[in-house]
């Protein structure tokens, strides 16, 4: 992490037991301003528990959390005033209207009375709730309720925004809106979101932590994660293909695997890309090259690789 960005959240050696079973083991996290951190993991890996400990909803059995330099255990008010949290189940009072619920959330976070109206209007605009203000929360659809949950978490412009599976239950266009919103929030604030949707991480997070059975097993930037144990290669389509051995003979090629009559997956050595040579040869010998697509390992593959390695 670049040292220039101020650290907004740091957690050291968090552990948590339920009964006799330790579900979180020594989790340490650090987050700088302007970072969007994706917390990945299978169901039951401990993501929600970790997020609850970061926000003070659960007390860790050992370890400490500090938000913008305020210790969550000894200065809870200062620390909590700088957090916005959307839990797995949005904490909505279903019998309230959206406006009065958000006003309550704003007052609870000690926004001065004269700024509540502007904060409310701004938050509703950001979350696309302009027309829903007077509606009773219970009558809203799941997607709108989720938005109210997000609105509640950001109304006081917190330094650290923690979202537990923010896009669950939303339709694709809403998901896109929420992702845009999170990216926008990520510019000025720090955001942690937990998810098991890898596309989400690819889209919006600039850092990834993978959680597996209560431990953080991998942490890196999401671009670097995509390169994890990545085997360079490409898929080439040749409409009148030669013998496989001819392809195999190219410099740098490690393996040629026919995918269909005209498609071949070619893995090559790092730093020796035979693509250009192959295309030249194809033109000379009339193999009728149609397309050449570099292999990209999806985060999904990487995620499976990392969690299975454990």
């Amino acid at each position: 992490m670049p040292s220039a960005t101020p650290i907004t959240l740091s957690a050291r050696n968090l552990s948590r037991r339920f009964g006799g079973r330790e579900v979180i083991h020594n989790v340490s996290l650090e987050l700088g301003r302007g970072e969007v951190l994706g917390l990945l993991g299978h169901n039951g890996a401990g993501k929600s528990t970790t997020l609850q400990m970061l926000t003070g909803a659960l007390t860790p059995h050992s370890g400490e959390v500090s938000i913008c330099g305020f210790d969550l255990a000894s200065q809870p008010k200062e620390a909590k005033a700088r957090i916005g949290f959307l839990p797995e189940t949005p904490p909505l009072y279903k019998d309230m209207s959206v406006d009065s619920y958000l006003q309550f959330a704003a007052k609870l976070r000690s926004i001065p009375q004269n700024r509540i109206a502007t904060a409310l209007a701004e938050t509703k605009r950001r979350c696309g709730l302009q027309d829903a203000g007077k509606k009773i929360i219970a009558t809203l659809s799941k997607g709108y309720q989720q938005r109210v949950g997000i609105a509640q978490a950001i109304i006081h412009e917190p330094e650290v925004i923690i979202l537990d599976e923010p896009t669950v239950g939303l339709d694709p266009s809403q998901i896109r809106d929420i992702r845009t919103l999170i990216r926008e929030l990520g510019n000025a604030h720090s955001v942690i979101l937990s998810t098991h949707l890898l596309g989400e991480v690819e889209n919006i997070c600039n850092r990834v932590e993978i959680m597996h059975f209560g431990r953080l097993i991998y942490g890196d930037s999401s671009a670097r994660m995509q390169q994890y144990q990545h085997q360079p290669g490409f898929i080439v389509s040749l409409l009148s293909p030669p013998e496989i051995s001819e392809l195999q003979a190219l410099d740098g090629v490690l393996e040629v695997e026919p995918l269909s009559a005209t498609q071949f997956r070619i893995l090559h050595r790092d730093g020796a890309n035979p693509g250009a040579a192959l295309l030249e040869l194809a033109a000379q010998r009339g193999w009728r090259a149609e397309q050449l697509v570099p292999l990209q390992s999806s985060l999904e593959d990487v995620f499976v690789k990392i969690t299975e390695a454990q």
Partner: peptide, 14 residues
């Protein structure tokens, strides 16, 4: 039961 306590528990109130 409705897990709305989280809102109060994570707000800056004792």
């Amino acid at each position: 039961r409705n897990q709305t306590m989280t809102l109060l528990a994570t707000a800056p109130v004792s």
